[in-house]
């Protein structure tokens, strides 16, 4: 090359402390233990302290819980999209099914929240998995379209046949016994979903699920049913989504067709993409940004959705790695420009 311009490329090198703390030797020094644990501790501490800090303002307490609800929905989306390869545009389907299931269990059968939430979560996840079962062989855009239609179909069916309370929905659902029960119940569940799924994806069973995303033909050639593997994954994702719906309707004591609303499908996608796709923690971060933002924009009505949609588009187009992946990189690596 005889060109005069010097070309540069960005080089990324793992930080020494990152490499050292990868193995057991991390236990050698407090600095390395701290390096390893700080991010996790910060996350856990933030959520554990949140109810204590917010207890004087019940309204903001509820906002804090909305973060957890959205985080659960986003984790469900992230897991399906980035570990299984099923991009679902219908997160509201899981949410709504869980919500309605809990409402029926509570108002018709009189189950208390302690029972109605877990039962609704399980039954709802079963229902969602069965409903999506025929769509599992679909790929990419086809799966996205079909899942987008499911929640819309639910609202239209409820409206058209006037079932499940029609457009009115259910009212007078039992609430929680106290502020802290409500708060810590949900926060605990979110941690279970987050850390449970993070652990699961690295176990052998989770590996098989990720293999389906990587290369489903090889999975077939390994004597494993791809449809069954996907169904398991969808069940896990719908457990997470249905729980969020079931919990939320007990918080606000009512449920309506708005549980299947489009926002509930779009917001988790936005939270995941902003927070960092494929990390499971990213969606929590995204939710923690989007929900307060949406509170501040509450007075502006539909401008809220405009802002989300713009931020979402911006991230999809220009910063598709999301905040979490960006921050992880900065935390673990040094960057410098090298002449070539």
């Amino acid at each position: 090359m005889t060109t005069e311009t010097t070309q540069k490329r960005r080089e990324r090198i793992d930080r020494g402390i990152k490499v050292r703390s990868e193995s057991l030797y991390a236990l050698n020094s407090f600095e390395e233990i701290a390096y390893l644990l700080t991010p996790r501790v910060l996350l856990i501490a933030a959520f554990v302290l949140m109810p204590l800090i917010l207890s004087p303002w019940p309204y903001w307490g509820r906002v804090g819980l909305s973060v957890c609800i959205l985080a659960l929905l986003s984790i469900s989306f992230d897991f399906l999209a980035n570990y299984v390869g099923l991009v679902s545009l219908g997160g509201a389907f899981f949410y709504g099914v869980g919500g309605y299931m809990a409402a029926v269990l509570n108002t018709e059968l009189g189950l208390p929240p302690v029972l109605s939430i877990p039962v609704a979560t399980l039954l709802g996840a079963g229902f969602c998995t069965l409903a999506l079962l025929p769509c599992l062989p679909l790929r990419g855009i086809y799966f996205a379209i079909v899942t987008l239609m499911y929640p819309l179909l639910m609202t239209r069916i409820i409206e058209a046949f006037d079932i499940l309370g029609g457009t009115e929905g259910f009212r007078g659902i039992d609430g929680f016994s106290g502020f802290f029960t409500e708060q810590y119940g949900l926060i605990l569940a979110m941690f279970i979903a987050l850390f449970g799924l993070r652990r699961f994806v690295n176990m052998d069973g989770g590996l098989v699920i990720r293999a389906v995303k990587d290369n489903d033909q090889s999975v077939r050639a390994s004597g494993i049913s791809v449809t069954r593997t996907k169904a398991k994954a969808v069940f896990l994702a719908s457990l997470t989504g249905c729980f969020a719906g079931a919990y939320y309707i007990h918080m606000y004591s009512n449920v309506g067709i708005s549980s299947f609303a489009l926002d509930l499908s779009i917001m988790p996608i936005a939270a995941t993409i902003i927070g960092g796709a494929g990390t499971l923690v990213g969606p929590v971060l995204g939710a923690a940004i989007l929900v307060p933002l949406s509170e501040f924009l509450r007075d502006f009505g539909s401008l809220r959705i405009v802002v989300y949609a713009l931020v979402l588009t911006g991230f999809v187009v220009f910063r598709s790695e999301g905040l979490m992946n960006y921050m992880t990189r900065k935390y673990q690596q040094v960057e410098r420009w090298v002449k070539i």
């Binding site: 991009v87 990419g140 996205a144 588009t313 999809v316 187009v317």
Partner: peptide, 17 residues
Amino acid sequence: EVSEVIATYAIGLVFLE
């Protein structure tokens, strides 16, 4: 494909909302 769907859908939301 999925980014195409999400991005165009989001832009549509911007217009409509």
